[in-house]
Design a protein around this nucleic acid. Structure first.
Lengths: 340, 340
DNA sequence: AAACCTAACGAAAAGGTTTTCAGCAAGGTA
DNA sequence: TACCTTGCTGAAAACCTTTTCGTTAGGTTT
């Protein structure tokens, strides 16, 4: 435990200028490639900057320019698996430029949210991405001094710009895949009905079946929880009640893992006799199972990247609004189509 | 697609002062609770600030104070599950104060890392937390103008402060748990030997067995990969080779899930005949299985919080160094002890 | 030789806040 | 009355950078 000597203050432009024997104005121009500097002077400044490892202070620059080159990322469920890919996508899109990300996690607590919001605004972020913990619409932040993009969880206000995965389309996509691979007696086990993700996916599935002149086995979806245990239990019920079922379309990969488990217990071969499919394409679950799980990937990283791009556009004055749905992607694995 | 009208410039202290009919100096004092302001004046200022929804510009404040109230969080594996809890813990510790987190993901690419580092330094962060993608030591950032704390992955330089989970202790903890619950013929299936986490856990296990006059079944650990498939395969091998095995100590929850799966295939009851245990306490895996998995939690959120606290201390001049190991926590579930 | 142009550089302002210090008025004391 | 507190308030400097505009020196044109 040593006492840190007073940390030397970071080098400033004035130091560089003094060392190079020029004024700060000239030093600034030399470093920023402005063209009113003699070549010899410029190289002298550059060398001086190099020598004292000068790092320009973007705080001062931001104060002057009125733009800080930072954006706020306000998430509500960092622990959940949905925020992270979005965050990564956004970070990626920003990272290439000179924008940095200020991260806050409100944990679904609106008090904490407004607190963080305050902090972000006082730091003069150039824009804001608000990531929901689920796809249910959330209250708008209202009129903000900077552009806002809502990702994953849309704003209730249609004047805001929201980017969400197309869960209805995802449901249809998966149902069509099962139909195309010869399934027709399809049961649907899903999570809590309180989640719009669950309801939307069910709607998409129902629509696709409708279009094929079919309907869900048992007439409707089985709502429960997003857990393996529920998948196991529900699958057991369905098999007992409908021995001729040929596909278990599950609302999440966790549920699908449970369903696979139940089928294994009964010695029912997957996918030969019954196909199983999930949603979310949660790698560790989907690729760890035997057989591996066919699933729907919401392409959240793309969603995050898109959100970042839209935010940039908004910062540049291209204001857009409404809730836009981004397509999901089918990932076919062994649980619906036999491995070759 | 509407063109955004020019966004009104944010209110400044000058605006507040003008509205309240005082100078900016007085307005500042009134808002910051300084005690040289008449009560009546203060309330007039507060009301003015309220009315034009004044938010102090912390950029300007930071410029003046030389402290920005931001810290950089430089991670190398945002997609991995280890960074997130650390990040949450840190965010939590900071969140209560007035510190914000600038997040960067270098993805294990040192070019990108130095790029991000540059950005963070130019933003004049007050400190830096560097999160490794694994527990293997990494090159030091060297002499930085701000304090740095390494979390999860330690720095190679002992002059830096690093915080890592005590994987050796974790191994011993788990082995002792198995011994205490009556197991003695213990096999160890783990991940890639290239990971120090794998080697450290194995070392801890071996030590604890040693102390009890025992050794690993087969004499040594089975190294493979961190996957369910490897867990299945390795478990099968062990059962065939050592039919009298009574515990499968797995290096991760994924491996343990695979092992459980293999045991189920053979109809071997868990935990009655063979106990199974994992590491990492990855909730979705550990609680989704049947029976649920006994595991070791590295308490990464605590690690993140601790890192944040140490960083604060360092910013305050309390410089500390060396690689400090934080204890892990045993979580007992049905795979080692029968549910009541 | 006078007038003019150009290139290179520096002085100063701006951005928003905090802090220091000086000033000022009111009230009290000698 | 002259002086001293005490309590408030405001002017100005400081933080660091960028940009505008003015200045200087040297060279070119008439």
């Amino acid at each position: 435990m040593e006492q840190a000597g007073q940390r030397r203050r970071a080098a400033t432009l004035k130091d560089v200028a003094a060392l190079a024997g020029v004024s700060v104005a000239t030093a600034s121009k030399a470093l920023n490639g402005r063209d009113q500097v003699r070549a010899e002077t410029r190289s002298r400044v550059l060398e001086a900057a190099q020598r004292i490892s000068f790092t320009p202070n973007s705080v001062a620059r931001g104060l002057l320019a009125g733009q800080t080159g930072t954006v706020g990322l306000l998430t509500n469920d960092l622990v959940g698996r949905f925020s992270i890919p979005i965050l990564m996508g956004a970070e990626d899109a920003f990272g290439t430029g000179k924008t940095s990300v200020l991260l806050c996690d409100a944990r679904g607590d609106s008090i904490r949210e407004s607190y963080h919001l305050q902090a972000l605004l006082s730091r003069r972020v150039d824009g804001l991405i608000v990531v929901g913990s689920d796809t249910d619409p959330r209250p708008s932040l209202g009129d903000m001094p900077v552009p806002v993009v809502y990702a994953y969880g849309p704003s209730e206000d249609p004047n805001d710009l929201s980017l969400v995965p197309d869960n209805v389309g995802a449901g249809s996509l998966m149902a069509r895949h099962l139909l195309e691979t010869g399934r027709s007696r399809i049961a649907h086990i899903t999570g809590e009905a309180g989640y719009s993700a669950a309801r939307d996916r069910t709607e998409g599935i129902t629509r696709a079946l409708d279009a094929a002149g079919l309907s869900l086995l048992g007439g409707e979806a089985l709502y429960g929880s997003w857990s393996e245990a529920w998948g196991r239990a529900a699958a057991a019920v369905i098999i007992d009640r409908h021995p001729d079922v040929d596909a278990l379309l599950c609302g999440s990969d966790q549920i699908a893992r449970g369903a696979l488990d139940a089928l294994r217990d009964r010695g029912i071969p997957v996918p030969e006799k019954i196909a199983v499919a999930g949603f979310d394409n949660w790698e560790v679950l989907a690729t760890g199972s035997r057989p591996q799980l066919t699933s729907i990937d919401m392409d959240l990283e793309v969603l995050g990247r898109t959100a970042a791009q839209r935010l940039f556009a908004a910062i540049d004055g291209q204001h857009d609004s409404g809730t836009q749905k981004l397509p999901c992607r089918l990932v076919v694995r062994g649980s619906t189509v036999p491995d070759p």
